[in-house]
Design a protein around this nucleic acid. Sequence first.
DNA 1: GACAAGATATGATCAAGATCATATTTTATT
DNA 2: AATAAAATATGATCTTGATCATATCTTGTC
Lengths: 212, 212
Amino acid sequence: MPYPQSHKSKTKARILASAAELFSRKGFQKVSIGQIMKLAKMTHGAFYTHFASKEALYNESVRLTLDKSQTARLVKGPLSVQHLTDLVANYCNLQELVNKHEPGPEAVLFNEIGSEKEEIRTLFEASYSRMKKMLETRLMALGKLKKLPFANDRNVIADKARVILASLIGAVAIAKSLPGEAESKQVLTATQRQILLMMGVSENEAENMLHG
Amino acid sequence: MPYPQSHKSKTKARILASAAELFSRKGFQKVSIGQIMKLAKMTHGAFYTHFASKEALYNESVRLTLDKSQTARLVKGPLSVQHLTDLVANYCNLQELVNKHEPGPEAVLFNEIGSEKEEIRTLFEASYSRMKKMLETRLMALGKLKKLPFANDRNVIADKARVILASLIGAVAIAKSLPGEAESKQVLTATQRQILLMMGVSENEAENMLHG
DNA sequence: GACAAGATATGATCAAGATCATATTTTATT
DNA sequence: AATAAAATATGATCTTGATCATATCTTGTC
């Protein structure tokens, strides 16, 4: 068996490094496979030995940095009301995500939305169910601490998790898509408020969370 | 002024017709400008006399059929609780939209989401504010007929409209992106139920609306 | 009817993603 | 070392969206 496993993975890592460098400087669309491979000291043909497509490269590149992200830390963090609302707030506090046109690591769920490619849909599904499970766990825990405005039932909670995710993703998608910032912000905060309401947080408490 | 205005618009219409035919048979991605122009009896270069890009063609093509759609009729229809819930149900009843991979006329709001192109964002903004205004009008009218679970205040209603849109768009986006149909359907119905709840429709009533 | 001028169409050309037959490199075996 | 076999890289080639200089067509004017 010629070539140690290490060689291929090292080459791949070199491509990923080149890509990360160029993507962060110029953005995904404006970087060509040729440029990436040139920086990685290879011809463009070799690219496809390591990645199925430019999109696949993008996915791996995103996944690579995802673990380091703040959202990942939040998702893995301990259970608490504060945490859940932080998470919501974090997803909604999107000046970060909306302003820089470059897809940050948190963007998997949102940027890949609507893709028709099977590969991306699978990636999306993974993000989705991870988030959903996390929300369910949080809601269950929350239900034991305080009275929630809905039944503490597995199916009901699953549905609430679905609704929360749909609202968040929709709000972010709208915010990203609208050209103006004012309306974007209002969509985000209105959605955030509604979610907190759904979780039985009073209007006053909610206001404190969003501005404090 | 050589050439009557009619000539250009006729040629453009011919291209649009070719495109509609091919798109509906093969889908957007799998049809090339060359194929479209061949069907329209021209060379591919001429395409750009009439459209700025393939995406622009897609937009016009969608807009062209949008007026005929059921959603357009609903949006223009008379004000009533039944109408508003129908509208929500219609947007959520997406077997149509989800099953056929082809973008139906209802899909503008959803398919263009996340686009970074200014042109598309503007198109999206138009769809968004039309929907939002429509929702606001419906909610105002609804508030006069029955007690809603929120203040009958202009700003509050605007926020509710924002939340409803975000939920709908998010749910549809998720449903479209998930590979499996079961979870897609659950996201859609859960969201629908939540929206009806927000509008003060009781759980029982909601159940009837969704299954009756 | 010929002509000028503007509007349209043509086809060569480019850029970039993707594919593939072929060449090269690397390792295990002898 | 030489060799076989597998892995990897090369570069030509294809496809498709987009651009552009040029050619062709249409119409009002003379």
